[in-house]
């Protein structure tokens, strides 16, 4: 039950805590944030999309010590998917997830990654399809000197709902986490991004960076951003930032002064924002990259 404008009279949410608690009991919970906050914000809980049961197709990945493995998950059908990955000492996992599920179908994804000493996760995610996406990424950085480099892109339009919950637990010493998220929302889409950097006791010398940039492209959208940072260790360097807004008018003005119409200029700015994520797709997946480019371009054009 989302808090609506009419519910904010003089600052008091009309949606009662009891009503929200009842909703939690009635609907199947998909995931929660690690530390709860006010209920009226609707940020504590992600629910299972309608039409899906929580009986996932599970895939297991093990990367042996010192090895490097690349896995591309290209998901185009409605369903609940789970990946469990164990990246052992000194190993590297390059994990790419591209979600292009039809826009009338629901989708869930849970990815758990354990990183051993000196292990590294390179994760790239593109969440562009489905009517309702619920996606969770949980990285357990148990090993000293482990690294996670996470780049994610989401695109919402029409009536789509996107619910992302990324949790990075930094447990080992000198771990390094980087979480970069780019998004664009059109139509009447709704999105919630919860990103948690959790510096646990013993994670001395660790650094964590989290950044989300959202472009709002129509008046019917709703964006929730919940960048959480938890720290039980002083010798860490944590930073998070969120930027939410419409497209930079100066950029648009510049492009239009060079002859582009407004729609083309907007498209170009969105593409540029997505570029750092798309560029991480492996060269061997050029066909997939072309498909994603065409898909996003088509969706952007449809909404002009």
């Amino acid at each position: 039950m989302a808090l609506q404008e009419k519910d904010v009279n003089n600052g008091t949410p009309a949606v009662t805590a009891a009503a929200l608690a009842a909703e939690e009991q009635q609907r199947a919970v998909f995931s929660r944030i690690p530390s709860r906050t006010w209920r009226w914000l609707g940020a504590n809980t992600a629910y299972m999309p309608e039409g899906l049961t929580d009986e996932p197709v599970t895939q297991t990945i093990t990367v042996e010590p010192g090895q490097r493995d690349a896995v591309v998950l290209s998901e185009r059908e409605s369903g609940a998917y789970t990946v469990q990955a164990d990246v052992q000492e000194g190993a590297v996992l390059d994990l790419v997830k591209v979600q292009l599920v039809p826009d009338d179908a629901p989708y869930t994804s849970r990815i758990f990654v354990h990183l051993g000493r000196g292990a590294k996760l390179n994760y790239t995610a593109i969440e562009a399809g489905a009517v309702h996406t619920a996606s969770k990424l949980e990285v357990d950085m148990e090993g000293d000197d482990s690294q996670s480099d996470i780049w994610s892109l989401y695109f919402g339009d029409g009536e789509s709902k996107i619910d992302l919950n990324y949790i990075i637990r930094q447990r080992g010493q000198r771990t390094d986490a980087n979480m970069q998220v780019r998004g664009a929302l059109l139509g009447h889409s709704e999105k919630t991004f919860r990103g948690t950097l959790d510096f646990q006791r013993g994670s001395a010398g660790s650094v964590g960076r989290e950044n989300e940039e959202v472009v709002l492209l129509s008046s019917g959208v709703r964006n929730r951003s919940v960048p959480i940072m938890l720290s039980h260790e002083d010798d860490v360097d944590g930073h998070h930032a969120v930027s939410i807004g419409k497209m930079d008018e100066n950029k648009l003005y510049y492009l239009m002064s060079r002859g582009l119409d407004l729609a083309a200029a907007q498209r170009l700015v969105v593409e540029a924002s997505f570029q750092p994520v798309l560029d991480r797709l492996p060269a061997s997946e050029s066909a997939l990259r072309e498909e994603i480019d065409a898909y996003l371009l088509g969706r952007l054009s449809e909404n002009e």
Binding site: L41, A43, G220, S225, I244
Partner: peptide, 14 residues
């Protein structure tokens, strides 16, 4: 922190 933004005419930084 939590940010909940409706519509596209907002400029929010955190």
């Amino acid at each position: 922190p939590t940010m909940d933004i409706e519509g596209d005419e907002a400029d929010i930084g955190h």
